[in-house]
Amino acid sequence: MKPMLLALRDLNACYGESHVLHDVNLHVAEGEVVAVLGRNGSGKTTTLKTVMGVIEAKSGQIEYAGQALHGASPENRARIGIQLVPEDRRIFGGLTVEENLVLAAMGCAKPLTAATIYEIFPRLGERRKSNGRHLSGGEQQMLSVARALMQAPRLLMLDEPFEGLAPIIVQALMEVVGQLAKQGQTIVIVEQNVKACLTLADRVYLLSNGQVVHEGGAKALLADKETQKRHLSV
């Protein structure tokens, strides 16, 4: 049995006065790919941001590698191996691809090299001297993921990585995520593309109104059209 890397226990979180997460319980084993799915507004992104420390938990516990994260800043969480790729990408448009990667590696004791990143994303190697703002949407998403990988994270969280991208780019990114998983990377993925997400994941949690309403194997949910319709269809 693989050791537990991340555990959320009775987690509650708020945006201002709005109570978004309600007693969420979720766990991720080392080397596992876990999908968090749900309709818009169900609390998926809030879950990732709370793990990252961008949103402070109101109550409950977040444990990472057996360590309670209460009060830890996002910077400290990144330092111990947690990386979040946000849905808005947040690359530096005025910097080149290579400069974005160099900046991402700063503060990391053992970062990946740019050469390693270019092996994972050959297209970024081709565009290494191009400014971020001149990249296509797919290239910007690749760079956003690459920036997180530069820190050699133990836990990689992806928020809507396939949103708004052409099918051919989605397929290319899926192949990268799949390869990372084969290499033992622990991944939590939030995504609206249900089929793509369930193809990559080992297990899945469904959220509705900030609560976990389903937990199980990804392959079983992929075949369970009734549960998908109940909790995921618009």
Rank of each mutant, 00 (worst) to 15 (best):
172 A>E: 00
151 Q>N: 13
155 L>A: 06
176 V>N: 02
173 L>M: 01
148 A>S: 06
149 L>T: 09
160 E>Y: 07
170 V>D: 00
166 A>M: 07
163 E>P: 09
154 R>Q: 05
166 A>R: 09
151 Q>V: 13
155 L>S: 04
157 M>F: 13
143 L>E: 03
173 L>T: 01
156 L>P: 03
167 P>S: 04
164 G>V: 12
175 E>F: 04
153 P>R: 00
173 L>N: 00
157 M>I: 10
146 A>Q: 01
173 L>D: 03
171 Q>W: 05
143 L>V: 10
147 R>C: 04
158 L>N: 02
149 L>W: 09
156 L>F: 07
169 I>F: 14
160 E>I: 05
166 A>Q: 07
156 L>D: 03
147 R>F: 12
151 Q>S: 11
155 L>Y: 01
175 E>I: 06
145 V>D: 00
144 S>V: 14
170 V>Q: 00
159 D>P: 11
153 P>Q: 02
147 R>V: 07
175 E>L: 04
151 Q>T: 13
153 P>Y: 00
164 G>C: 15
155 L>P: 07
156 L>E: 05
174 M>R: 12
175 E>Q: 08
144 S>Y: 08
169 I>L: 14
164 G>W: 13
172 A>W: 05
177 V>S: 07
145 V>N: 00
159 D>K: 15
153 P>A: 03
172 A>R: 02
160 E>N: 05
161 P>Q: 02
148 A>R: 04
163 E>M: 11
176 V>Y: 03
161 P>K: 06
149 L>C: 15
161 P>I: 02
152 A>E: 14
165 L>I: 14
171 Q>F: 02
142 M>H: 09
161 P>R: 03
174 M>D: 10
174 M>W: 12
148 A>P: 07
168 I>T: 14
172 A>M: 05
155 L>F: 05
142 M>K: 02
146 A>M: 01
171 Q>C: 00
144 S>K: 09
147 R>E: 01
174 M>P: 06
170 V>T: 08
152 A>T: 14
151 Q>E: 12
164 G>F: 15
157 M>G: 12
167 P>D: 05
164 G>A: 12
174 M>F: 09
167 P>F: 10
153 P>G: 01
152 A>D: 15
143 L>W: 11
